[in-house]
């Protein structure tokens, strides 16, 4: 089977596939209760656009924050370009895997 990514790449050469996962430690979920979502994002976009989309679909208030990580430790800054991060950190199946997290709680 040809990879999913290849078929995307043919159809939408200016976009890259992102697989977003919300960390288990966070209570944040998408409205359907899921922790994963796939996105096709324009290479020339900056991540702040992506942050906005996420904040909206997760219905976050201003006083909440979300953090996106690649490679388990690298923080994605809003001003980074999607294409740049993608070419640096894409995984072998063609997806850019991003983990979403918020602040931890302490007791």
């Amino acid at each position: 089977m040809q990879s999913i990514q290849a078929s995307f790449a043919d159809k939408y050469p200016d976009r890259v596939p992102i697989l977003l996962e919300i960390t288990d430690k966070s209570k944040i979920r998408f409205s359907d209760g899921s922790q994963h979502k796939k996105y096709l994002v324009s290479k020339s976009d900056h991540f702040y656009h992506f942050f906005q989309i996420l904040r909206n679909s997760l219905k976050l208030s201003k006083k909440e924050a979300i953090y996106l990580f690649v490679n388990n430790s690298g923080l994605i800054k809003p001003e980074s370009q999607v294409g740049e991060i993608y070419s640096k950190h894409r995984s072998s199946d063609g997806f850019l895997r991003i983990i979403l997290s918020e602040y931890a709680t302490f007791g």
Partner: peptide, 26 residues
């Protein structure tokens, strides 16, 4: 402060079009 830091506006529309099962186009 960049404009996009003010999270309160925009994007309401594209949000409504999201279908949770599918790949989302930005």
């Amino acid at each position: 402060t960049p404009e996009y830091v003010d999270y309160s506006n925009q994007l309401e529309e594209s949000n409504n079009k999201l279908n949770d099962d599918d790949v989302v186009f930005l």
